[in-house]
């Protein structure tokens, strides 16, 4: 009786240990490979660089509507909010003063543009 009970305890413990090992392996050792992803899944630094590229293009084009369309691929947030997130990231991670300045200009332009819309 006692040995049967302890066997069930071992079985349950082994089951839990197996689940833990399986989850750790599936999440950290060999996670699912994603492909054909959408831009909202990009790593934060790539998102910030995307905002920076939009700001650099905006310096020449001066078209907030076009800049907003470019940023719209990140999803449902407003373009100015997306640009502001990129700006905040740039401030925290050592973007140059010039880059911060043009990103700030983009944020301001998008806020004004979205107010007009």
């Amino acid at each position: 009786m006692n040995s049967t009970r302890s066997l069930w305890v071992f079985i349950v413990l082994a089951l839990l240990a197996g689940i833990g090992v399986g989850i750790a392996y599936g999440w950290y050792v060999d996670p699912v490979d994603y492909f054909d992803t959408t831009p909202d899944t990009l790593r934060a630094d790539y998102k910030a660089d995307y905002v920076l590229m939009t700001a650099e293009a905006y310096q020449v084009e001066k078209d907030p509507g076009l800049a907003a369309r470019r940023l719209a691929i990140f999803g449902t947030k407003s373009s100015s909010a997306i640009a502001a997130e990129g700006l905040a990231y740039g401030r925290l991670h050592g973007f140059s003063d010039t880059e911060i300045a043009i990103m700030q200009e983009l944020v301001t332009a998008l806020q004004a543009w979205s107010g007009i819309q």
Partner: peptide, 13 residues
Amino acid sequence: ALLLGMGMGLAYT
């Protein structure tokens, strides 16, 4: 039980 648990964990993740 150990293998079953690993399979369940992998299926979940």
